[in-house]
Design a binder for these strands. Structure first.
Lengths: 224, 224
DNA sequence: GCCCCATTCAAATGACTGTTTGACGCCGAG
DNA sequence: CTCGGCGTCAAACAGTCATTTGAATGGGGC
């Protein structure tokens, strides 16, 4: 039901999804993600979204059921992407080191995906901000998922425990918590604050250097 | 209506402020801080606040001018308290070490106040949650302050640069940023997530142990 | 004893919210 | 050509919101 007015040129469109998305639906998704990431969930109205997307007001409820469902749909897609990429990198590190990768490579699998997506020219830059914002401003449904679905983190916790078997499990869990805090703190507003404090010395734009700094800091913390 | 009859004993009240606060005003402040900390700024209406406080709806606008101004007033008080306490601890560490305290004591001055206030029986427990929430959900006025007023952090940055003179200033700024991220990540929701992941192994209630863990992790990161 | 002023109160105001409605257009199948 | 239905549209709906209003209250200063 999602698509049927799209097929003007259905078999020529080069970048269509397996599940072809109506142009309206895609535009709403893109506009909503952008506005939510920039201004917060509660500060963006359905009217703002449809105006930005250039579609009718009723489109959101027609295609997604409700504003909250739209939010959740974006959230679902983006967290799935992020978790998949992190799992992929952890798996590769596993392969490289016969199932027991060192701490730094485990942390790199955790840090690099959001950092790579945050590069200034990346089209996913806004998605990372959306995900980070979802953590503190999301709807109840989103928070429920964040609170209870931790399966993607279990692999990381296990890998870290294997890499540092002398650490008590609770130490590993806490330090993983600290590392996640480092990532979630990478919001535009926090960079602004740091930029003010350092009088422009810290350029957020160099994400490769930032990733290296984060790894240096977190790795040392884990080896303490 | 609760009582304008507060001033019956105005000069006997032992714990009155220099600027005596009407009972209504104080009740609104307390109720607002509590509700905002627990449910978020946008999810709490003026009606919720006045109902919780047991005062009339118009009280908020009468005493504070607007909902946003009430928010800002709480924010202003709490951040001032926190900054004052952190500065005090840093100053004491300065005195103890002749002006050049070690990294760990500097970080302790940064971490301990919010941790101490987060103890389960502390009446300021809710204030810490309010401050943390303000960082990501605050009004534009609050975010403006957070972005531009960094004077209280400059002392910490300077102290850290003195303690580790071989580090480039930008390294110090970034690592301070990471440390602040660790603190700001201490929200109830994040503890829930960690609790789920560790299957109850991590007890958030032991704030002394948590502070020690944070210091171990952050100190190692700074000495890297 | 009387007035003034700060405070409190119930009620209303107006703006904005997410959502629903029913008509309309338009494409493809039969 | 005709019909079915999907998608779009403007308009309306119902609810909530922060804020304002003007009257009522009650105590302190004279």
């Amino acid at each position: 039901m999602s698509e049927s007015a799209v097929p003007p040129a259905p078999d020529i469109d080069p970048d269509r999804d397996p599940e072809r998305e109506a142009a309206t639906k895609a535009q709403v998704l893109a506009a909503a993600e952008r506005l939510f990431a920039l201004h917060g969930f509660q500060n963006v109205s359905v009217r703002d979204i449809t105006a930005e997307a250039g579609v009718n007001l009723a489109s959101v409820n027609y295609h997604f059921g409700s504003k909250d469902a739209l939010l959740f749909e974006i959230f679902r897609r983006r967290t799935a992407e992020l978790n998949r990429e992190r799992a992929r990198m952890l798996h590769e590190a596993d392969d490289r080191h016969g199932g027991k990768p060192p701490v730094r490579e485990i942390l790199q699998a955790l840090f690099e995906p959001p950092m790579r997506w945050s590069k200034p020219d990346s089209e996913r830059r806004i998605s990372v901000q959306f995900i980070i914002r979802a953590r503190s401003e999301g709807t109840e449904a989103m928070r429920e998922v964040l609170r209870t679905d931790v399966s993607h983190l279990r692999r990381f916790a296990d890998a870290l425990m294997a890499a540092r078997p002398e650490l008590a499990p609770e130490d590993v869990y806490w330090r993983l918590h600290f590392c996640l805090g480092m990532v979630h703190n990478n919001r535009f507003a926090e960079f602004d604050r740091l930029h003010t404090l350092s009088d422009g010395l810290t350029r957020e734009s160099d994400t490769d250097a930032l990733l290296r700094r984060m790894l240096d800091f977190a790795e040392a913390g884990f080896l303490a």
